[in-house]
Design a protein around this nucleic acid. Sequence first.
RNA 1: GCCAUCGUAGCUUAGUUCGGCAGAGCGGCUGACUUGUAAUCAGCAGGUCGAGGGUUCAAAUCCCUCCGAUGGCUCCA
Length: 632
Amino acid sequence: MKILLIHSDYLKYQVKKETPVAEEIEEEMKEGEMKECLSVFTAVEERDENKVEKVIAKGVNDIKDTAEKLDVDKIMIYPYAHLSSELGDPATAVEILKGLEDELSHDYKVHRSPFGWYKAFQLSCKGHPLSELSKEVVVEEEGEKEEVVSKALKAEETLQSTWGIMDVDGTLHELDIDGKDVEGYDFKGNGKLKDFVLYEAGEKEKGGAESPHIELMRRHELVDYEEGSDPGNLRFYPKGRMMKGLLEDYVSERTRDYGAMEIESPIMYDIDHPALKKHLNRFPARQYRMETPDKNVFLRFAACFGQFLMTRDMTLSYRNMPVRLYELTRYSFRVEQRGELTGLRRLRAFTMPDCHAMCKDLEQAKDEMMTRMNLAISVVNDIGINVLEDLELVVRATQDYFENNREQVEKLVDNYGKPALIELWDEQYSYFALKYEFNFLDPLGRASALVTDQVDVEQGERYDIKYIDEDGKERHPYILHLSPSGAIERVMFTLLERAAMQENSGEKPTFPYWLAPTQIRFVPISDDQLEHVEELVDDLEEINVRVDIDDTDRTVGKKIRQAEQEWIPFVAVIGPKEIESGKLSVRIRGEEKEREMGLKELKELHEKKQNGMPFRDIPLPRYLTKRAIFVG
RNA sequence: GCCAUCGUAGCUUAGUUCGGCAGAGCGGCUGACUUGUAAUCAGCAGGUCGAGGGUUCAAAUCCCUCCGAUGGCUCCA
């Protein structure tokens, strides 16, 4: 509803002729006049339909607000269609206008001019600064929005789960969880798994400390908050962008190697698209919503939409299956509740590698899921996160699915290689019947999922994705949803948290070598060595090493300290001695004493640590004196 | 979203209890020093005290609203 409020000396009207939508009126309503009043020109709009009472309440509120400020006791309600181009139906309009009249009558003298008549009117506006005011009365489409996005969210709230631990040999131990007590399994030597159970199903200790990665991501000039955006949308500095880019490169390369076809799809979708609308109802998340010039759209929370709409239009035969599609979503968007956001761990905009496989039947889906689990294990290990030591497996399924496919779950747990948490749902709240996750546990027992794969038993049909089977009949595929590494930001979160854990246990914290922003730093003792160092750096860059030079006028001690604080793996001090001997004095991070070696040996050490992982050039100027500071 | 805590220079922070001149260290800049494996010395610049409103002779300090951050609840990649 749109309203235009005018503080008037008077408003006077005479009814002339009825329009097709005119309300029936008494003779006495055919003309009217009010002096020293607030004139309320009103247009009821389409979006007010079905929300009559709320619109009235809100409108009354707004009008009273203004009336109080202007200190008037008379109100003229005047229907005025020209305020809006999206008018509601006349019956609703009359209902709302009458409602406003009734409600306002309690406190004001109210006159309502008739709806749907051509009228002549004379109006005198007082002309002071507050005398003209237009307002839009919008009732949040709570009902509607909730309907669209939250069925799965709501279903999840009432979900009943039973919990268990499955051994590698397939034995399932049912857990009895009461607060901080877990019975039914001997967690000896497996404290992390117990922490994980408590995090998922029990109560954990109160009073958590700030996640260490938050300070680290800023101190190392990787990532920072961006107050100019929405919460959970971060800025990446050059070093952070490089690290993230390398991870993106690697995960994408490995996923393509597995046989996935990389595609690209839009980040926004029509909220009124029938298949998408139903899909939203089966995914427990909130979306960013926005208006384009022609449509109401939402921002994707994963790559499903684009890939499914694409496969729906494809011609598929059983011979093509499984069909694997991959996209690195930069970004996926989820409007997580404000209090759920933390640093790199939980964001509203994040980069997720998302790989779907269309499988012709459940048997093929099971086999494919196993292949993909091995891909994920290999990818995560190679990145520098130890799957067995650092992560915990959970398999979640509906009770029904588990009973009929227990063998699959046993194989997944066996393949992972250590006891896993099992969650069984009493009903299927979302589109998947089974999912597994690799979860990282921080020292305070907070779990974050990285890798996940799901068996989707609904959306082949929902999106009308079809393949022609051997018997010539059309069938809907089972769809797997894999993120082979988990969100890239969350991978960075895990790496930083792990570094903090190293530090706490007395080790020197490190980045995986292939991700270290600077891999080798040269520290010349004085400016005299700069020319020589320059040659060494040129030489090293030939074989793809990220090298830089500390050419500041700090003391050697200070330069070393600086390099240590940047967690640089190799630091080479160059003075007259080294130039003389042609050797290098190399400090290796984590070793007590520096080592003397030739350039060749340093190159070999580099190659060994780089281990064939992707490479990007150093993202900052070679000379430290040329570098701008991003954070303190 | 709810509850709690927090927001002072680029960074870390003192000052907020009980209203009364906004201070320091690091970093930056300038100069000196040209240095041998985790902090060289001196000087200078740098502040809408998160934003807006209110109370007051006077607000970083008290009150209100908003924004942002952290932790917990809930939830996820």
